[in-house]
Amino acid sequence: MSASIVLDKVTIGYDDHVVMSDISLTVRRGSFTAILGANGTGKSTLLKTIIGLQTPIAGRILFSTPTPKQEPADKNDFWFGGEFMTAQRRPLFGYVPQSNQFDALYLLSAFDVAMMGVYRRIGAGRIVPAAEKDLVCECMRATGADTFAKKMFSQLSGGQKQRVLIARALAAKPEILVLDEPTAGVDVAATHALLEFISQIHREQKLTVLLVTHDLPLVRKHTEQVVWLHEGKLLQGTASELLNPKRMAEILEMEIS
């Protein structure tokens, strides 16, 4: 089960610092959307606001619910393209952060890290049951991380770490998979393999995928929708609409060869 996202006139930022204001955005259920933009434009802030790590300064964020009601209970709820959108429910996110943000002091194996994905379903103080451990093994097999499951997470390469983090996100049984620059610090070959793999998961599981990246060729090849943050504005369209040289030149007000 995946979910749709609607941002309605949302202002994002930290404390008293506004990063982007009055932005509206629609991400359809089962779509693969890339969020692009130069450093400091607010890509990660937008992502963190969507997944609930930061509170929007203004506006509302709505998600589709898998059990639609007949009538909106809240005046802010509404029907959108056959889906019931509400701000009352948060979908389950599978979050894949940048692999280089983790502290090497933690003596955790790749399996230990992937196992954290199932903690949502395990009550506080409870031991992880065997069935959940099997699921983690399955997710690690699917991402190709099973071959280094017993190795220390801190000693893995960037690409290997990302596979473990994606396995962890999948083990959470997410409705929306969110990846924050997953190819940062990963070599070219591993980057292609990683994006190919994410595309495969997207197709097979019909997951809604949100991907923050700088890599335009990969976006052109793999994603359907593009959200481009540029000078405080948010542009949304298909990859072919936004990422052709003419349109990019218009946006950037310069010639792109």
Binding site: L53, G94, M116, Y119, A124, G125, R168, A172
Partner: peptide, 19 residues
Amino acid sequence: VFYKELLLVSFDRAMAATL
């Protein structure tokens, strides 16, 4: 008893919040 939760929020706060 709560080792699992304490380790998770220490290692990856963002993941813990999304879970």
